[in-house]
Amino acid sequence: MSLLELHEVHGYYGNIHALKGVSITVDEGEVVTLIGANGAGKTTTLRLISGLLHPKKGKLRFDGKDISTMAPHMVLRQGIGMVPEGRGVFPRLTVRENLEMGGFIIKDKNDVRKGIEYAFTLFPRLKERENQKGGTLSGGEQQMLATARGLMSHPRILLMDEPSMGLAPVLVDQIFDVIRELNAQGTTILLVEQNALMALSVAHRAYVLQTGSIVLSGKAVDVANDENVRKAYLGL
């Protein structure tokens, strides 16, 4: 049984049929990536998983439990962490406070403190900015903060929405190194990316979304070698 399972999921924004029967599975320990052009439905998929949007048809299961109609704050409690699109750093909370909010559901204060220590070893830059307001950080630092914050609740799966967006190439490399490292330590990751080349290089498996439907799926290497994908998304 897969850790996360989307079965024939349909998502709507009002009357707009944004997701037309998408089925995705993510197994424990995997990095799975969802690639596709703008408006293909990548972010919609993540919104459906995290509970910000509910499917009109189809089922979402996490660890065997139906999460289709759960509110976002309950979805997180099942063990689904989120690094939202555009980072979602709280601009007028300090770096430390942002991390504390990531660990909101954890009752044990010591556990939260340890989580923050771990975040600082993962991103030493955040340690230097500890008492600075989130809104004053650079884009790269905000992405580090959002990633570290997503890990604070000890999720079994981390959903990442376009972590490379708007970052300088050197920072993109750094973020993807962290993704590799996290996965090596056992974190399961569902990665949504426009930067298909980078995404396919870290992922085990990949799904290609096109106007709300999955047009191709398989091992990341195979997807990367697909003629159409190479033309459409990799520019090769």
Partner: peptide, 24 residues
């Protein structure tokens, strides 16, 4: 306090606050 920080999070970004497990 923790609940006070949650109030400020909700004030600054309600969607992200919900994604952090905060019952908005």
């Amino acid at each position: 306090t923790k609940i006070g920080k949650a109030i400020r999070s909700v004030a600054q970004d309600r969607t992200t606050a919900a994604l952090m497990g905060i019952g908005v």
